[in-house]
């Protein structure tokens, strides 16, 4: 693994996306539109104040999951991955390159979504905005890492899209958006407590309401970080130079 190859890969991924303006538009605008829609639905209530931060956690995660799983699947299917692995590219170069590129996109996406949520929808942010970005980026990287993993188990684009309900929906359901986790049945509460998205939602809620101190938030970020590292390690094991 070498920095120049990792950066070359990240640059190449970003250049690919730059040549696809429609994807850029969707990536940057859709989260804000949906946040706006949720705010509008709960216009007369205070619900948006509680679930607004969770919305900010969801979008980078879902979008990055989809973008990464589909683009790595394309690499596997088009033969470019086979070509790269017959070249002196490390598996780490490949994965970190993708992580860097999509991490950068996640920062941009979050910046727009947070700007829209606070300025247009009136979401309050009590804690530091820096922490909010750190959580959102961790969230996006989690999506990238899980997307990479999902692409290894899918043979077609159809299958990879079906992996989203499997890997993403349970995390949304058990994350405490619909019902606070301590009110869930015991088994589900325990499962929910171990899922990474729950911690992202907790952290963003804390950032927004200011109910907890910074250590509480950093602990959650650390937990998400562990998930990212595990998913990347398992994902890199699925990138084999030799295949049957």
């Amino acid at each position: 693994m070498t920095p120049s190859r990792t950066l070359a890969t990240a640059g190449r991924v970003l250049l690919q996306i730059r040549n696809d303006p429609r994807t850029i538009g969707l990536l940057l605008v859709v989260p804000s539109l949906l946040i706006g829609l949720v705010a509008w639905i709960f216009d007369e209530t205070t619900v948006f104040d509680t679930i607004g931060p969770a919305m900010l956690a969801l979008f980078p995660f879902i979008v990055m999951f989809l973008v990464t799983s589909i683009s790595t699947l394309r690499e596997r299917r088009s033969g470019t991955l086979e070509r790269l692995l017959s070249m002196p590219l490390g598996r780490g170069d490949f994965i970190l390159g993708y992580t860097l590129a999509f991490g950068l996109l996640a920062v941009l996406q979050t910046a727009i979504a947070v700007g829209f949520a606070t300025v247009v929808c009136g979401l309050e942010i009590e804690e530091s905005i820096v922490l909010l970005f750190v959580v959102a980026i961790a969230d996006a990287l989690l999506g990238t890492a899980l997307g990479l993993l999902a692409s290894a188990f899918a043979r077609t684009e159809f299958q990879v899209v079906q992996f989203m309900p499997v890997l993403v929906f349970p995390q949304i359901l058990l994350g405490g958006i619909f019902l606070p986790r301590d009110q869930l049945p015991n088994v589900l509460e325990v499962i929910g407590d171990w899922l990474p998205l729950s911690h992202a939602i907790d952290a963003l809620t804390a950032v927004s309401t200011g109910g907890e101190d910074a250590a509480y938030i950093w602990l959650r970020i650390l937990f998400i970080g562990c998930w990212i590292v595990c998913a990347i390690i398992v994902g890199s094991l699925t990138l084999r130079r030799r295949t049957p």
Binding site: S4, R5, A8, T9, G11, R12, L15, Q16, N19, D20, S78, G79, T80, E82, R83, L84, M87, P88, L89, D93
Partner: peptide
Amino acid sequence: SIYDDLSVRANLRYFARVQ
């Protein structure tokens, strides 16, 4: 096995950097 959404030169530049 090349990237559809990159120009010919960008494809080759990337492979050159990897190589």
